[in-house]
């Protein structure tokens, strides 16, 4: 598994970013997530906060940081919606934790792995939203596979473009 496993002969590379990037990139993702549906209409099959969460969690390789970032992004999204605050928070907390945990074990420089992880974590996040809403809270919450699947695909496509751009912000050790 040379592709999936991290190279054991060298330490996994951990990237650092300027503090401004940590503050502005998530905020920009949240603002764009709230504003872009005005332009894209019903084709808003993307979740920029999740993509950013996965990116930082994968590259920082810190489950705690990934967990906190996911929780913050999810809670912020919930605050902008009219749902209960915490639904997306739980989902993105788990997604951030999983992304960082996987990032420790696989080669995150590979774009295919990044896209695959984005796709899978999007499905996990959407599934958790449904689970928390329907089963944990017992709310009347309808959902469609179509939306979940296309959101995961949209996130993967965005990650394909966004990750190389964010890589340029990194400060290599």
């Amino acid at each position: 598994m040379p592709l999936l496993a991290a190279d054991t002969r060298r330490e996994p590379q951990t990237r650092r970013y300027p503090m401004l990037a940590y503050a502005l990139v998530p905020l920009a993702a949240l603002i764009l997530q709230a504003w872009l549906p005005q332009l894209t209409g019903r084709y808003s099959w993307f979740d920029l906060p999740l993509v950013v969460t996965v990116y930082f969690a994968l590259d920082r390789r810190s489950p705690i940081q990934g967990t906190f970032m996911g929780a913050a992004m999810g809670l912020f999204e919930d605050a902008l919606s009219h749902h209960a605050i915490g639904v997306n928070g739980v989902a993105k907390t788990v997604a951030g934790f999983l992304a960082a945990s996987v990032g420790v074990r696989v080669d995150v420089e590979n774009h295919t792995i990044r896209l695959a992880l984005n796709f899978l974590l999007s499905l996990v996040s959407s599934s958790l939203v449904v689970f928390v809403s329907r089963f944990l809270l017992g709310l009347d919450y309808e959902w469609s596979w179509f939306t979940v699947l296309f959101t995961a695909l949209g996130n993967s496509l965005i990650a394909l473009v966004l990750f190389p751009l964010l890589d340029r912000l990194a400060v290599r050790d």
Binding site: I64, A84, I85, G86, V87, G89, V90, T93, V94
Partner: peptide
């Protein structure tokens, strides 16, 4: 840390949801 964050959020969710008369949550 993950469990603590999840627990805190689930408690927060439980506070926001209430049972209606017909047994459903809203």
């Amino acid at each position: 840390v993950l469990l603590a964050l999840l627990l805190a959020q689930i408690i927060g969710l439980a506070v926001q949801v209430r049972r209606t008369g017909d047994g459903r949550s809203s």
